[in-house]
Design a protein around this nucleic acid. Sequence first.
DNA 1: ACAATTAGTAACCAATTGTTACCAATGTCA
DNA 2: TGACATTGGTAACAATTGGTTACTAATTGT
Lengths: 221, 221
Amino acid sequence: MRSAPLNSVDLVLCTPHGRQLAVLLVRDASKRARERWSLPWAPLAAKQAPEHTASGVALKASGARASWLEQAGAFTDDKRHPGGAAISVAYVGVTPARARELPDGAEWFPVAKLPLLAPRHRAMIDAAVAQLRERMDRAPVAFRLLAPMFTLSDLQEVYELLLGRRLHKASFRRALQAAFLVAPTDEWRSEGRGRPAQLFRYAPRKRRGARGGVRFELLGG
Amino acid sequence: MRSAPLNSVDLVLCTPHGRQLAVLLVRDASKRARERWSLPWAPLAAKQAPEHTASGVALKASGARASWLEQAGAFTDDKRHPGGAAISVAYVGVTPARARELPDGAEWFPVAKLPLLAPRHRAMIDAAVAQLRERMDRAPVAFRLLAPMFTLSDLQEVYELLLGRRLHKASFRRALQAAFLVAPTDEWRSEGRGRPAQLFRYAPRKRRGARGGVRFELLGG
DNA sequence: ACAATTAGTAACCAATTGTTACCAATGTCA
DNA sequence: TGACATTGGTAACAATTGGTTACTAATTGT
C-alpha cells in the first residue's frame, strides 16, 4: 500500500477579509519546521468527479459549502506538492465572510500576508486570484463572496477588492442599474453610524445581447 | 511495462479556416470503426514541463510551432480518453493559416463540423474555444492567429470570428488606433480586386493603466 | 440642535462609440 | 478608355456612456 497519493485536488478558497481577499489555509501537522501551513487538499479519487472532491474539501476545511467553485488548472511542474502528488488539480472557490468559527486548524490569511508555503501552493494561489479577477465579469463571483442579502456599498467594496482600485459610487450604481443584476428587498441594515442602507439580492433578469465594440485591453507582450 | 500511460497532455490547436475556426485532428490508426479522429496528444512525462510536451505535440502534429499556447484545464471525469489516460491536461494553441501541407494523418476541421470524437476530446475542444474567446482581450491571441504581417481587414476578420459577430470597420480601427497595438509597415498587399491594403505588424507600445469603470457583462445564472 | 457619517440621486460635462458618408486605388468589362 | 464594382481608409456627426460635482436623506454621537 502506498502512503503518498499519485494525484491531488487542491483548493484555494477565498473570502473577503476587511478590505483584503483572504485564502483559507490549514495547519499541516505532518510537516517539519518550515512549511506549517498548506492549502486544503485531498487525493484525487478516480471514481469521483474532481469538482465533487473539491466541494468536499471545502466543506471539511471551512465548515460550509463553497458558494462558487471552478477549476483553476493542473499543476505538474517541478514545484513539489506537500503530499507528494504528481499532478495537482487546483480549484478556486469563494465563500461569504462569516462570523461563525472555522474548524480546528484552519485559518484565513490575507493574500498579501501569506506564510511560507510549498511552491506549488504559492503558484496555485496566484493563479486562483488571477482567475477570480478575470471571471468576475462572466460569472457571479462577486455576488457569491457576499451573503444572499447585501448593501450596494458591500457590493462595491467587493468589486474594488477584486479589481484592485477604487470605483465611483454614482457610476458604479448607474452601471449596476443598467445591468439588471440586483433587486431591492424590503429590508434595511443600519451599521451604527450613517443612514441605513437598503438590502439587495442577486436577481439577474433580461439581457440585451452582447453589445459594444471591441476592447483592446491588451498590454505589451 | 505498462502499455497505457497514466496521464496525458492533449492539444487543441486552432487556426482560421475561411470564416470559421478550425481544429487540428489526427487520424487514430489504433482505433476501431467509430472514432477514427482524435486530438493530438502525448503521455505526460514526469520530468518535463507539460507546456513543453504540448509544444512538442504541436510541432509534430502540425509541422510548425504553435504561436500561442496555454493550459486549458485538467480533464479527469468519466469521459474516457482514447489512450486510457486517467488525467488529461488540455492545452489550447493557435497557429496562423498556412498554405503549407500538414504532416500525414493530420487535418483541419471547422469547429462546427467535427467528426465523432471521444467525449473527453469533445469537452476539451469546447473548453479550448471558450478559453480562446475569453483570452483574446488579455493575450495577443488574435495576432497569433495571423502571420506576422497582416492587413487590418484580416485582423478584423479574426476578431469577428472569435467574437462571433460583425464589427464596424471605422469603430474597430479607431479602437485599434487608440490601443497602440499595431504599427504600419511599408508593404502593401493586393488581393486582386479593390484597393491594395497596407500591411501591419503587432507592435504593442505604451498603455494607460486600466481605465474605465465596471462592466457588468454577466448573463443570468 | 448640530456636526459627523453613510446612503442615495440628479445633473452636468467629457469621452467614447455607432453610424453615415465620403474619397482613394485597384481590377473588370463594355 | 471610361464607367463601375470592389475593397481600403478616414472624417465628421449623433447618440450613448462614463466621470464628477454637488446635492438631499437618514441615522448616531455630543
